[in-house]
């Protein structure tokens, strides 16, 4: 555990010594802000209109349903597909390029300690991003009365979604010495996984159903609604496990060659 933390600390240090952490955080905070503003403004004008029309019988509009859900499910998810590769692309590619991989692999560390350390470092940076999002959402409590409980599910969903992407991105980073290639590869694969459920709209054959199950976006539905479904949790955790397992295999293969 001590070794895992040492490696994780090193990764975090790299993120914050380089512009990467600041770039990712700034982009994220700015986009969150814009999206949050637009959704809130739309919500307010909609609510006013309903009030003027005197819709007394209609149920009150839900803040969770009109602001939080579209923010997480619709938009930020897509942003993550492009932002998280920036976080993971350097994890192994940079060590391979600079030769420091030789230091790590000849130290008394197991491969798994190195992998978990790297994953943990990336996860901590990502948790900061999630925290930023929820800082915005916290504003809602001052001016409205959103339901707090679904937010827990929302946060958990966002974390799990990101964790799966990070683990897979780390795997892609073991393929090459070139960070850009690792990053672009991650983006493409993430995007494909994201749209894997689209064929569902016009077909319902078995392979299409499998594809739809694999889709990253499908499993965020429940979380975005505020529901924690065990199946979805298992889905994202398997994504994390798969990413870590494949990274381990890839590092093994790395050693067999030069």
């Amino acid at each position: 555990m001590r070794n895992v933390i040492a490696v994780a600390g090193k990764e975090l240090r790299h993120y914050f010594h380089s512009p990467i952490a600041y770039l990712v955080m700034t982009v994220w905070a700015a986009l969150c802000g814009v999206i949050f503003y637009i959704l809130t403004a739309a919500f307010v004008s909609q609510a006013l209109r309903m009030q003027m029309m005197g819709g007394m019988g209609a149920p009150p509009m839900s803040i969770n349903e009109f602001i939080v859900r579209p923010m997480l499910q619709g938009i930020l998810m897509v942003v993550l597909l492009f932002l998280l590769p920036l976080v993971t692309m350097r994890l192994y590619a940079e060590e391979k390029r600079s030769g420091t991989i030789e230091l790590l692999l000849t130290s008394p560390l197991t491969d798994m300690q190195i992998i978990l350390g790297k994953f943990l470092g990336a996860l901590v940076l990502y948790s900061v991003l999630v925290a930023i999002t929820f800082l915005y959402l916290a504003v809602l409590f001052f001016y409205g009365n959103p339901n707090a409980r679904p937010l827990i599910a929302n946060a958990l969903g966002l974390l799990l979604f990101g964790a799966a992407l990070l683990a897979l991105g780390m795997w892609f980073s073991t393929f090459t010495k070139n960070q850009i290639i690792a990053g672009v590869l991650s983006m493409v694969i993430f995007l494909l996984l994201f749209i894997a459920d689209w064929p569902q709209n016009f077909s319902s054959s078995a392979p299409v159903k499998v594809l739809a199950y694999m889709s990253l976006s499908n499993h965020l539905d429940n979380f975005a609604k505020g529901v924690i479904d065990l199946g979805d949790v298992v889905y994202y955790l398997s994504g994390v496990a798969l990413g870590i397992f494949l990274t381990a295999r890839s590092v093994d293969a790395l050693k067999g060659r030069a």
Partner: peptide, 16 residues
């Protein structure tokens, strides 16, 4: 590995 100190051909340092 605990008993080995290793300097590869190019020093394995982190520039940052």
């Amino acid at each position: 590995k605990r008993r080995i100190g290793y300097l590869p051909e190019s020093p394995p340092v982190y520039p940052d």
